[in-house]
Amino acid sequence: MFDGLLNQLVQGVLQGGLYAMFAVGLSLSVGVMRLVNIAHGDFIVLGSFTLYSICTALGISPFLAMLIILPPAFGLGYLLQTLLFQRIVGKDILPVILVTFGLSIIIQNGLLMGYGPNPRDLNAGALETASLNLGGGVAVGVFPLLTFVSAVALIFALDRFLYRSRTGAKIRAVSDDVEAARLIGLSSRKIYATAMGLVMVTIAISACFMGVRTNFNPASGPSQLLIAFEAVVMGGLGSLWGTLWGGILIGLAQAIGARIALPWEVLSGHLLFLAVLALRPQGLMPKE
């Protein structure tokens, strides 16, 4: 009965790394700008399609393509915040939801018109199929392992940046109290724009790993958003390391659900989230 259970749990944890990667950008925008971006998942999918086009056109590896799009991704985030989100970040939630929801629909349908409804994936060659046998019936794919390690590295880097750099301190300052920042002459605009640029960088990285790991189509965004959202809430709003735990928990829940019956895989993650919410609404690792 427990045949392969350990193996499945390990796969679940590794899958959770990918989810944490989706979620870390959302955690940042929620934590810093209080911006719950409904289009978060759609931006990931947009990134995957962009990488797909670059890889197809230039015949290069998705990882190289990812490096190419990181600077423009930062620029896109910076502009998006400056031109659009800056106008809606504030107390009212309706504009935030409507504007990001509108973006989500625009991206999905734009991709549908440009690429059609068929699923695509990014080709990373032999890396995708390589696996390591750890013994005891546990074998992990090299790529899932790489994804997990990258997610941890990304969170570590962001954490360092936020807590060790001058820009990071400014980001935390406006996140603490944007009114106080304004009173002392600390402009939140550029800081928010920088933070959104970083969010887009995490999205571009997620887009690469997701695209290699799974198929994606123009309608894939919302499910990534929901998973990212669940990881953020379960991990405690605004806590980056909490987000990693949130992602891992969803990965584990899905692995266990899939073991019961494959169609329950996705549902199990959502049910875990609702259960956590009912029992511990502040999340599992709340930011003090």
């Binding site: 301190a169 935390r172 300052a173 603490d176 109290d177 009114e179 106080a180 920042a181 009173l183 002392i184 003090e288």
Partner: peptide
């Protein structure tokens, strides 16, 4: 109106 989560030095 300090930034409560920032250190003294960061503030």
């Amino acid at each position: 109106r300090l930034f409560p989560s920032l250190s003294v030095e960061e503030n």
